[in-house]
């Protein structure tokens, strides 16, 4: 009885340790599976070490797209999956990174907008587009940028889960919307 009990206790500890090890090693895989709706896996590239790679604890990079001088990356950090951009003339050199705690993409969050906005009037918090770029889920075929009155200022197609353009209209932008193949709005922020 005693021996059987000790064996059971040891087995319980062993199972717990195995589960902890699996959780520790499979965290990244679980996050990757939550990105299953991004069918563009990209091409593995070597990260060039620098401040951002060090500070964001980036470990691996996949080049999702090159659009002109823009390189778009999916990046695996120590604790989360991140997305970033850089100069396409220097692939692997990451110039910006956004990481998130939660899974991406999901039905509730199908677009990660990485666009650059600018303001040129002090005191006025109406910002216009400087450059458009971002990541979108498989089901998103276009991304719209909206005026404060809700009208569409710009519609950008999504290709290979990436959208981008440097040809942007002037004037205030107040929101972003994701559209499906039929032009139906799937999501809007804010």
């Amino acid at each position: 009885m005693t021996r059987r009990f000790v064996v059971a206790a040891v087995a319980l500890v062993a199972v717990a340790a195995a589960l902890a090890a699996i959780a520790a090693t499979q965290g990244g895989a679980s996050k990757r599976s939550s990105l299953a709706r991004l069918s563009n896996d990209g091409r593995t590239v070597t990260l060039q070490h620098g401040v951002i790679v060090r500070e964001a604890h980036l470990q691996r990079a996949s080049l999702l797209a090159v659009r002109g001088r823009l390189a778009v990356y999916r990046l695996e950090g120590r604790t989360s999956t991140c997305f970033g951009t850089g100069d396409s003339n220097d692939v692997g050199q990451v110039g910006s990174v956004q990481c998130a705690h939660g899974p991406f993409p999901t039905a509730g969050w199908p677009v990660l907008d990485l666009s650059i906005y600018e303001g040129a009037t002090h005191g006025l918090r109406e910002l216009s587009l400087y450059r458009v770029e971002g990541i979108a889920a498989d089901g998103v075929t276009a991304v719209e940028f909206l005026r404060p009155d809700g009208s569409v200022a710009l519609k950008v197609p999504v290709s290979g889960n990436v959208y981008s353009t440097t040809e942007v209209p002037s004037g205030a932008i107040a929101g972003v919307a994701a559209l499906d193949k039929a032009g139906k709005e799937l999501w809007r922020s804010p």
Binding site: A56, G95, S96, V97, A100, L114, I116, G119, Y130, R131
Partner: peptide
């Protein structure tokens, strides 16, 4: 110039990214 975010976590950006 910059990027908007509602997210919690970490963000890094270099000047050339915003032109």
């Amino acid at each position: 110039r910059g990027r908007f975010t509602l997210l919690s976590n970490r963000f890094y950006i270099q000047p050339y990214e915003v032109g």
